[in-house]
Amino acid sequence: MEVPRPHDHQLAAVSAKLDALSQQVGLIVERQRKTEELFAEMTPILKLAMGVASERLGDLERRGYFEFATEMLKVADRVVTGFGPSDVRQLGDAIVGILETVRAMTQPEVLAVAGEASAVLQNADQAEPMGILGMVRATRDDDVQKGMAVMMELMRHVGRAAQLVSDKRAASPLEQKRSKLATITGAKKKKVLGVERPAPAAPAAPRAQAEPKAPAASCGVPQTAPSPVAAVLDGVGFSADGHLADPTQWTAELAVKIAAAQGVGMSDAHWKVVEFVRADFEATKVSPNIRRITQATGVTTKDLYTLFPKAPARTVAKIAGVPKPAGCI
């Protein structure tokens, strides 16, 4: 068999296209002819119609339709400039809801309630001034009670709807992005109703980590000057309440002596507490109370009462050569 040459193949394709084209031309000619026929038939009818229409338009003109339409166009123009296409799309989504709301609000019963209420507003100038007592008295009125119930129910629904709106807003991707951005940049919150919010506390200065935190106000005032000396024993001055008058005179030997006088035999556990109390007083100039000691050394309150029976904080303060702790915790 002879293989068809490429040339023949292309020829066949061109002739097929030509066939299709001539068919289409035939169709167009046919349509044109029909249109012409239509025009020929329509011309008298249109002439008649135009006559009627212009008569009608003149009539409309007289009745002010066009003036109305021009004004309406101005309104429409204002609406268009005020709203974007997305607003219109949202309106389309909401139209069913809007219509339902309007229908519900225009029910005769609802209108009756609104009419009654507006009648009161019209006569607002005749209302007597009322204080809190008057309000309380008014709540005994059955109608007022009913009205309050309606108002409460209304408020409940409004609140629920508002919650829904805020939930929806929070869930929207834009808002999520915004809040994320706010957390990253630490943007300050919008002021609400002019309420001034305190600025967030500045980050703690690095030196605060090195120094022990000063105890709170409940723990007494710092004492820097030595207490007045009330008694002198072995050449060391003591204050009236039995504490070392000058904390700098303290020595370990003296501590053992004072402890013995208090009925305390010093062990490692005792020394741990005494050393903390001295170090803490050194840093804060305040004798630590029991709570501060237990929190800093890890010794429990119970153990502290065992180590230093009777008033532990005061006994430790005596042994450590610092003033009597002032706090009551």
């Binding site: 709170a216 409940s218 709570r291 915790i329």
Partner: peptide
């Protein structure tokens, strides 16, 4: 809290431990 006062629950624990 600012005065570093313990909570009521904690106060009761402290009381118990202190005898």
């Amino acid at each position: 809290e600012e005065l570093e006062l313990p909570s009521v629950r904690e106060m009761l624990q402290i009381l118990d431990e202190s005898g």
